[in-house]
Amino acid sequence: MEPGDSTKQARAAAQLRKGVLEYCVLALMRDRPRYGVELLQALEDSGALATSQGTVYPLLSRLRRDDLVTTTWQESASGPPRRYYALTDSGRAALDEFTRVWPGFRDAVDTFLSTPPPSTGDHA
């Protein structure tokens, strides 16, 4: 493979990740609060959403400032206390909205990718 090809692939993945990462992070907190390392581990395990882990902390910081998540400290049996991230009502609303629009978005992209582009008439 040409080096340029892998760079372009990485760029496509990075663009997609940029758009959906925060909603995936919110989704990880849907059922219970999670602490940072736990969130990063889940993203890592997903494969496609794995990212340079440190970049998730600025995202979490913004979610907190935008009042989509709240944080609480909890003691742990091993090691230092963990900072847990939990959804707020507006965080849950943002996640619900994304959950609502995502299937249509995904299907539209699939359609563009799987069918030939419509004829313009010139080539009929």
Binding site: E44, T51, S52, Q53, G54, T55, Y57, P58, L59, S61, R62, R65, D66
Partner: peptide
């Protein structure tokens, strides 16, 4: 190494700060 390049993290933080109200 898993955390990543400090420059990448700083750039992400700046981008996030730029879009925040």
């Amino acid at each position: 190494a898993e955390l990543g390049d400090p420059r990448t993290i700083a750039a992400t933080a700046l981008a996030e700060a730029g879009r925040a109200p």
